[in-house]
Simulated assay, not measured.
Amino acid sequence: MAQSLDDILAADAELPLGGDLKHAVEGWLSHLIIERGQSDATRAAYERDVRQFLAFLKSHLGHPPCLGDLERLDARTVRAFLASRRKAGLTSRSLARSLSALRTFFRWLEREETAKNRAFLQVATPKIPHSIPKPLTVEGAASLMEREADERAEWISARDTAVLLLLYGAGLRISEALNLTPATAPIDGRDIMHIRGKGGKERLAPALAVVSDAIGVYMRLCPYPLEADEPLFRGARGGPLSPRLIQLAMEKMRLQLGLPETATPHALRHSFATHLLSAGADLRQIQELLGHASLSTTQVYTEVNRDRLLAVYDQAHPRAARR
């Protein structure tokens, strides 16, 4: 009986490949960083997707795959791989990302004249359900920012407040906030941050005075030395702060404040964009502040405003019931 994909990955972390294929995979991963400037996180995600496919192929073929095996792939095998990942619980969004990573790998192989196979182009991308961001209300966001300190150490409460203000007050992703150093943080009169976001895309993000003040309070209280080029935000033992700790703190706060389950750290970034749009900000400006590569990505926030407007209409307009 063939091993499951999870069994293969668990039992054989290195996943032995034909020598030519191993060299090709290593070359592609280097290309992602050196030539395309992809972030370490993107490279890790792409590597994971390709490893999962090669693990499936090893089980499917009964031997470690080589480049010749890749050239002989057909669309049926690709669909079988996607079906196995679907059975393992992957969503359509995750499957689409995995398929995109594999197409990128095969396009690189073809461009390098290493191998050629168009099977991945013959397989349709899984349809991703349309969804819109779920921001907090202005009142909900304010309750998080103005909450009273809890029983934890004062410096930890100050740290979490500073991080949350960076998400809501500057629209940063949590990874972007935790990548700040004392040299790049909005302190000492600096009110502009140079942020390196997804795909290595750089942008300027202004910081409100309340954000800078919160970071200043945290830095004064932090018991650990904060060197200029080291992580600004620290965990309880002094190491770099884990995103998971902010997520857990947010879970606790939303229970205390009666906020919905959709109140996550990333929801604060959505709230930043939605509340700016509600206040009359230009969509193109919001795109630049968020670091979106395409305006179509930012336009989803117009749908949030539309839904909110209709909800208010349904609740308040005397003729709403006749619609």
Rank of each mutant, 00 (worst) to 15 (best):
residue 135 P to V: 09
residue 153 A to Y: 09
residue 205 A to H: 04
residue 131 S to M: 06
residue 242 S to A: 15
residue 77 T to V: 15
residue 10 A to M: 02
residue 22 K to T: 01
residue 25 V to Y: 07
residue 185 A to K: 06
residue 127 K to H: 12
residue 205 A to L: 05
residue 205 A to R: 00
residue 14 E to C: 10
residue 106 F to A: 04
residue 289 L to E: 01
residue 15 L to R: 11
residue 200 G to D: 04
residue 27 G to P: 10
residue 207 A to S: 11
residue 77 T to C: 15
residue 257 L to P: 03
residue 227 E to H: 08
residue 57 L to Q: 02
residue 214 A to Y: 02
residue 145 M to T: 02
residue 110 E to N: 07
residue 169 G to A: 11
residue 142 A to N: 13
residue 20 D to Y: 06
residue 65 P to N: 12
residue 256 Q to H: 13
residue 161 T to H: 10
residue 312 V to H: 14
residue 239 G to M: 02
residue 112 E to S: 12
residue 199 G to V: 08
residue 292 H to M: 11
residue 167 L to G: 09
residue 59 S to H: 02
residue 113 E to L: 13
residue 201 K to I: 03
residue 142 A to K: 15
residue 13 A to C: 05
residue 248 L to W: 06
residue 245 L to E: 12
residue 162 A to S: 14
residue 304 V to N: 08
residue 134 K to E: 13
residue 206 P to G: 04
residue 73 L to M: 11
residue 266 H to Q: 13
residue 70 L to A: 08
residue 39 S to Y: 11
residue 314 D to G: 15
residue 31 H to R: 00
residue 23 H to L: 09
residue 169 G to R: 12
residue 263 A to P: 05
residue 128 I to A: 10
residue 56 F to A: 02
residue 253 M to I: 05
residue 321 A to C: 11
residue 108 W to K: 12
residue 19 G to V: 13
residue 174 I to P: 07
residue 143 S to M: 14
residue 153 A to C: 04
residue 224 Y to M: 07
residue 140 G to K: 05
residue 17 L to F: 04
residue 284 R to T: 08
residue 26 E to L: 15
residue 289 L to N: 03
